[in-house]
Simulated assay, not measured.
Amino acid sequence: MRNLKVTAGRDQLGDFAPQFAELNDDVLFGQVWSRDSELSHRDRSLITLTALMASGILDESLSFHLQNAKKNGVGKNEIVEVLTHLAFYVGWPRAWAVFRMAKEIWNE
């Protein structure tokens, strides 16, 4: 996510929910994700993936963050270990769903 200007909020919700879009693009991705001296992008990716998986959010937002985790240096063996570990805490079916997504992304 380094040097990446995120515009998903404005692209998808700008007309409908402009303040939410601004907070998403400018605050969450513009300010929070840019603080890499406090927490690396790699670590932020792992935390975000864990939160999404634990919340049962298994849609395109999880896929987006899996792709970013890969871009941020999370390797195949690491994502396998993370998902295996999480399976015991968040549920086996969720792990299966995320493994399917991760397999596609890390096999690209």
Rank of each mutant, 00 (worst) to 15 (best):
D36C: 03
G73A: 12
L86Q: 14
I57E: 05
Y89R: 09
D26F: 04
R42P: 00
T48D: 01
V74W: 02
W92V: 11
F99I: 07
E108Y: 07
V74M: 11
G75D: 05
L13N: 09
D59F: 06
K103N: 11
N107H: 13
M1P: 04
F29D: 00
L86F: 13
F20S: 11
R35K: 15
R44Q: 02
L66F: 03
R94D: 00
A51V: 11
D25T: 08
K76H: 11
R42C: 03
V27R: 03
N72S: 12
W92F: 15
D25F: 09
D26Y: 05
S40V: 03
R44A: 01
L46N: 01
M101Q: 12
R94F: 08
H85F: 09
V90C: 13
N77L: 10
A21R: 13
I57T: 10
P18R: 13
K103P: 00
R10M: 08
F64G: 00
W33L: 03
A97P: 00
A54T: 06
R44S: 00
A51I: 12
D26W: 02
A17Y: 14
V27S: 04
S37I: 11
S61M: 07
V32N: 03
R2Y: 07
S45R: 00
T48S: 09
A102H: 08
V6T: 12
L62N: 00
L28K: 04
R100F: 08
F16Q: 10
T50L: 07
F20Y: 15
N77V: 05
N24D: 07
L58R: 11
N107V: 02
E22N: 14
N68K: 10
K76G: 01
G91T: 06
E22D: 14
L52R: 06
V32M: 11
E60Y: 11
F20N: 04
M1T: 04
H65P: 01
I47C: 15
K76S: 07
S40R: 08
G91W: 06
I57N: 06
D25A: 11
N72P: 06
A8T: 08
H41Q: 08
L39H: 13
L46P: 01
S40Q: 04
Q67N: 13
I47R: 12
G9L: 02
V32A: 12
A69L: 05
A21C: 12
Y89P: 05
N3C: 06
M53Y: 04
D36W: 03
M1A: 13
T50Y: 10
L66C: 01
H41K: 09
W92Q: 09
D43S: 10
V90R: 02
L28Q: 09
R2W: 02
E78L: 08
R44V: 00
G75P: 01
A97N: 10
N72D: 12
N77H: 12
A54Q: 06
E22T: 15
R35P: 03
R10F: 05
F29Y: 15
G91R: 05
K103Y: 10
F16C: 06
D59A: 10
L52D: 02
G30L: 03
R42H: 15
N24M: 14
V6G: 00
A54K: 09
T84P: 03
R42A: 06
S34C: 05
S34A: 15
D11E: 15
A87K: 04
A51Y: 07
G75W: 00
K70T: 01
V82R: 13
S63H: 10
L28S: 09
E104D: 14
E81W: 07
